[in-house]
Amino acid sequence: MSAIAHREAASGGLWSRMSLGQKQVIWAWGFLAVPLIFYAVIRFWPTFQAFYLSITDWTITRPATFVGLENYKRLFADPLFWQVFRNTFMYLILGTPISLLISFVVAYYLDRVRFMHSFIRALYFLPFLTTAAAMAWVWRWFYQPVPIGVINDILSSFGIPQQPFLRSTSQALPAVLAPAVWAGLGFQIIIFLAGLRAIPVTYYEAARIDGLSEGAILRKITLPLLKPTLVFLVVFSSIGFLRIFDQVYNINTNDPGGPLNSTKPLVLMIYQTAFSSYEMGYAAAQTVVLFLILLVISLVQLRIMRDR
């Protein structure tokens, strides 16, 4: 807006009296304003709308009326919410460390491999490019009981009793998590590789001359210098696991988040409340809670992992 106003004033002489530096600033802001306004309108405005909706009982077909904190009260009294809350954190607590550990180990050794390095790297990256929905469907068939489930076929050919996997309240969540971890590996490995390559070789050479063992080099040089990479990946993958949705939804479309809600994450509960039961107000309240959880976790992680 200000850019336009200034340009209008140009004929009045204001524009010509400005220095080149001032003009550049105005031009820069003029261009920057476009994405900023766009972002504000499509991102921040709906966010504020969600806060407002969360204190109404809007159901699409019925007009919204103000209900105060009723939706929040209902949410905190709903056992399903607490189960979903636990599930969401299970995805986070299991998913983030496991995926980071695996991807670091792969990256660490892949970094030393020269033979077919790019090819192997591409293989690891491939799942990341695959649509989560397609992948979830393939894994859904892997987990089936005999005669069509690959995993159970292998188990029973060794005489091991077949496992229920997605039909068990205890095995389902890890079973859903596995493809999600696998899919994210490629991305994390690439980032780790970049981080490893960024560490100057001279440090390693000096350490080897001083006779440090490989383990000590890893602990004293590699890991500390990888910290910025690690912080980025931890925050990034945590947010990813807290927002997990498509894998869960697609691996069990007939009973999304089942059996008995044992795999249902918060995002899926929001989706069902909003677009299956049309309780928009209640869904907005859940969204606000998810937003606060994401905010707190990201801030805590950034604080803990900040350089002291």
């Binding site: 229920p164 039909r167 068990s168 309240t169 007939n254 009973d255 089942g258 059996p259 008995l260 809600n261 069902q272 299956s276 039961s277």
Partner: peptide, 20 residues
């Protein structure tokens, strides 16, 4: 009133017996 949710009740009822 909400077919998907009411169906889910039946799914869960059976699962509680068969899995739980």
């Amino acid at each position: 009133k909400d077919e998907a949710a009411q169906r889910q009740v039946t799914i869960d009822m059976t699962n509680r017996v068969l899995i739980g």
